[in-house]
Computed example of a mutant assay.
Amino acid sequence: MYGKRISTGIPGLDVMLRGGLIPGRTYLVKGAPGTGKTTLAMHFAMAGIANGENVLYVTLEEPAENLRADMAKMGFRINDSRFTLIDATPTSERYVLVEDFFESFAGSLEKMTNAIKEQIRERHYTRVVLDPVTMLKLTTPDEMEYRKAFLGFIKSMMRMRATVLMTSELQKTDIEEYLVSGVMELRMFDIQGTLYRGLKILKFRGSSFDCSMRPYEITDRGIVVYHDRVISLP
């Protein structure tokens, strides 16, 4: 009914998206620290691996060594040959890797875009993760320059037919939300002393979607979304 879809790797979220994400577009996952944004991004990456795709994952905040250790505990296939993890954190010993393409923490989103395009040309990555894009925004002081670079990034990825998922810890993500094709928000609530987690789709161009707040859990095997339940706030 809605055309070809690709899985997020989380069955309950795929149901909320009416079958999954529309390929070749850019999506944003936002939420406070500890809500599971990186875990959701890894589900998306591993769904690509399971589908025989090449996946490029750029970590901009969590060192790759820590990310590998945490994700391996959940059973993710992080050592698969089709999965490329790039450590672009400012604490990386090589400061940012992959030969000469990722230089000086990709000091701008434009440099990062060119580096990713080069990688896609070399290996035809169909899924790309930027986790979190917040770091690139904070290193670009000029707002107009950032907006132009962000739009350029989205257009470049669309031309290369890559499906992109980026995360953000900023609650206010005006330009990102406006330009991307979809926005998912992860939230935490304290209801009468009990912590609840809720996932809400705020935007999904080109399709209808479930706009209810659905509960989710972070388990030892990753995220589970309960698409048939609703969080009722007092």
Rank of each mutant, 00 (worst) to 15 (best):
M1F: 13
Y2R: 11
G3D: 13
I6A: 10
I6E: 14
I6D: 09
I10A: 13
P11K: 13
L13E: 11
D14E: 08
V15Q: 06
V15T: 11
M16Q: 10
G19C: 08
I22Q: 09
G24M: 06
T26I: 09
Y27I: 05
Y27S: 01
L28V: 03
G31M: 01
G36S: 08
K37F: 07
M42Y: 08
H43C: 00
T59R: 09
P63I: 10
L67T: 09
A69N: 11
F76S: 02
F76M: 07
E93H: 13
V98L: 14
F105M: 07
S108C: 09
M112E: 00
E118R: 13
Q119A: 15
Y125A: 05
V129Q: 04
D131S: 10
T134P: 06
T134A: 07
M135E: 15
K137P: 02
R147A: 02
K148H: 10
A149Y: 02
L151E: 03
K155H: 06
M157E: 00
R161C: 01
L165V: 09
E169L: 13
E176T: 11
E177Q: 15
E177R: 14
V183W: 03
E185P: 00
M188W: 10
D190T: 07
I191S: 06
I191H: 08
G193N: 15
G193S: 15
T194V: 11
L195G: 13
G198W: 02
L199N: 04
K200F: 06
S207P: 00
S208V: 11
F209P: 04
C211K: 12
C211I: 05
E217G: 09
I218K: 12
D220E: 14
R221G: 00
V224C: 04
D228F: 10
R229P: 03
V230Q: 08
V230A: 06
S232E: 12
S232I: 14
